[in-house]
Simulated scan of single mutants.
Amino acid sequence: MRTWTIANQKGGVGKTTTTVTLGGLLAQQGKQVLLIDTDPHASLSYYFGVDADTLTSSVYDIFVNKATIDADTVLNCLCPTKVDGLYLLPASMALATLDRQMGSEPGMGLILKKALATVSQKFDFALIDCPPVLGVLMVNALAACDKVLVPVQTEFLALKGLDRMMKTLKIMGRSLDKQFDTLIVPTMFDRRTNAAIKAQARLMTDYKQDVWQGMIPVDTRFRDASLAQLPASVAFPKTRGVHAYQQLLERLSVSKAHG
């Protein structure tokens, strides 16, 4: 199982859209895909019509039952989606209490990694949608992955947030003794605005080695797809936004072939 974490310490940059669309494309290729919501705001869960306030089991249970985690514990938390092969491990509001409850306990950063290892034979891919805050949840998501995707809105305030995220990855890499395979994904690109064009140019200058050469355009169909509780690749497969994510997935597949 390959695990990708979608992370940025700034909200509203397209993390959930990236998680859902890539997950949908992979499922449409016949892959078994697990989407994991580690954000207490539960945007990924709500996307698929799962109400985080009424759940009886969620990713929170994995942390609470960390001492006895097994495949059944994980599988019992899963929700199916409307797409064959695409499953959701939903979030709950209780996740917001984890840092206070368990943040200082030893081994807290590796719980999600251990949990995913128990179901690694059942899925081809796991995609983890992160909260925009560095805490025990983001630490777990980073420790569990073999690739980090960093969506960045093509505007200057978002670039400031990217600087912070890249520093976090360096610090976390030293702490976990791993070098993150990182790809920055420019999102919400509007070629009609000078600000977006300048921000894209700045990205390429400052982070050339780590930036995907393409970009995800502004596309209102992403919003329409969320209303339908479907990945845009299923609801509106011919749109430019989906085409851009297809190109991104091809880039990720190439990196796998060479990695």
Score class of each variant (00 low, 15 high):
A27L: 09
A27V: 10
Q28V: 01
Q29S: 11
G30Q: 05
G30L: 05
K31E: 10
Q32N: 13
L34E: 09
I36A: 11
D37L: 02
T38E: 04
T38S: 11
T38Q: 03
D39N: 14
H41P: 03
S43T: 06
L44N: 04
Y47P: 11
Y47V: 07
V50L: 02
V50I: 11
D51H: 04
D51P: 00
A52P: 03
D53T: 13
D53Q: 07
T54Y: 12
L55V: 01
T56Y: 10
S57P: 00
S57R: 11
S57V: 09
S58V: 09
V59F: 08
V59P: 00
D61H: 09
D61S: 09
I62H: 12
I62S: 13
F63P: 03
V64C: 14
V64T: 15
V64Q: 15
N65A: 10
K66M: 10
A67S: 10
T68W: 14
I69N: 13
I69M: 14
I69R: 10
D70V: 14
N76F: 09
C77N: 04
L78F: 01
L78A: 01
C79K: 10
P80H: 03
P80K: 07
P80F: 12
V83Y: 03
V83C: 10
G85N: 10
G85D: 10
P90N: 09
A91E: 09
S92P: 04
M93S: 13
T97P: 14
L98P: 02
D99P: 01
R100P: 01
Q101L: 14
G103S: 13
G103H: 05
S104Y: 04
G107T: 01
M108R: 15
G109S: 15
G109L: 11
G109Q: 12
L110C: 14
L110S: 15
L112E: 12
L112M: 11
L112C: 02
L116W: 04
T118R: 04
T118H: 03
Q121E: 13
K122N: 13
F123C: 06
D124A: 12
F125L: 01
F125Q: 01
A126M: 03
I128R: 04
D129Q: 08
D129T: 04
P131V: 02
P132R: 04
P132L: 07
L134W: 00
G135H: 09
G135S: 15
L137R: 02
M138E: 06
V139T: 13
N140S: 06
N140R: 05
L142N: 06
L142T: 00
A143Y: 13
C145A: 05
D146N: 14
D146F: 08
K147H: 11
V148C: 03
V148L: 08
V150F: 02
V150G: 05
V150T: 11
P151L: 01
V152N: 00
V152A: 06
Q153A: 11
Q153R: 04
T154R: 04
E155H: 14
L157G: 02
A158M: 15
L159D: 09
G161T: 07
L162W: 04
D163R: 05
R164K: 15
R164M: 11
M165G: 06
M166F: 00
